[in-house]
Amino acid sequence: MPGAVPQPPARDQLPGRQRDAQPAARGLRAGRRRPAAQQQAVDEEVAAAVAAGLLAVADPGTAARAVVTLCTAIPQWYRPGGPTAPEELAEQYVGFALALLGRPPSTGLDPSRM
């Protein structure tokens, strides 16, 4: 028919790789909103902690982005059963994040002080 707009093939008519990638691609598109919300939450917490004198960092926004980036990169390299247990990794990363945010290690991880 002249002027008809071609329709994409149905999912079950796509070659294997394209068919298999579709749900993952939809998940990535849907998940794009979540990182922004996570970043905003961390931005707000860091700003509040700086205002309360619990953290000493010159640029809270940049520091908060660095902390989120530090954490979101873990799935790129971490493998279960590797040399570092998840609990140990979490403890190390909390230390990295607090150091990055200007909190002296001597204050520990007492949540009541956060």
Rank of each mutant, 00 (worst) to 15 (best):
M1T: 15
V5Q: 10
P6Y: 05
Q7G: 07
Q7K: 09
P8W: 04
P9R: 00
A10K: 01
A10L: 09
D12S: 09
Q13F: 00
Q13Y: 00
L14K: 06
R19K: 04
R19Y: 01
D20F: 06
D20L: 12
D20M: 09
A21K: 02
Q22H: 03
A24S: 01
A24W: 00
A24Q: 00
A25I: 03
R26Y: 00
L28R: 01
L28P: 00
L28D: 04
A30M: 04
R32L: 10
R32V: 03
R32D: 08
R34S: 10
P35E: 11
A36D: 10
A37L: 15
Q38V: 13
Q39G: 07
Q40K: 03
Q40F: 02
A41E: 10
V42R: 02
D43R: 03
D43M: 01
E44V: 08
E44D: 14
E44G: 03
E44A: 13
E44T: 12
E45F: 05
V46F: 03
A48P: 07
A49S: 14
V50G: 08
V50K: 10
A51E: 14
A52H: 11
A52N: 12
G53L: 12
G53W: 07
G53R: 07
G53I: 09
L54E: 15
L55C: 09
A56T: 11
V57H: 07
A58E: 15
A58C: 09
T62Y: 02
A63W: 03
A64P: 01
R65D: 13
R65E: 12
R65G: 08
A66P: 01
V67E: 03
V68S: 02
V68Y: 01
V68R: 03
V68L: 06
C71P: 01
C71M: 06
T72Q: 13
I74A: 10
I74N: 04
I74Q: 07
I74S: 05
P75N: 06
P75L: 07
Q76D: 14
W77E: 13
W77P: 03
Y78K: 10
Y78F: 14
Y78L: 12
R79E: 12
P80L: 13
G81M: 08
G81Q: 05
G82F: 08
P83Q: 11
P83K: 07
A85F: 02
L89E: 12
A90Q: 15
A90G: 15
A90N: 14
Q92K: 12
Y93Q: 15
Y93V: 15
Y93P: 13
V94E: 15
V94Q: 15
G95N: 10
G95I: 07
F96G: 02
L98Q: 08
L98F: 05
G102S: 08
P104Y: 02
P105H: 01
S106A: 14
T107H: 12
G108P: 07
L109I: 10
P111A: 03
R113D: 11
R113I: 11
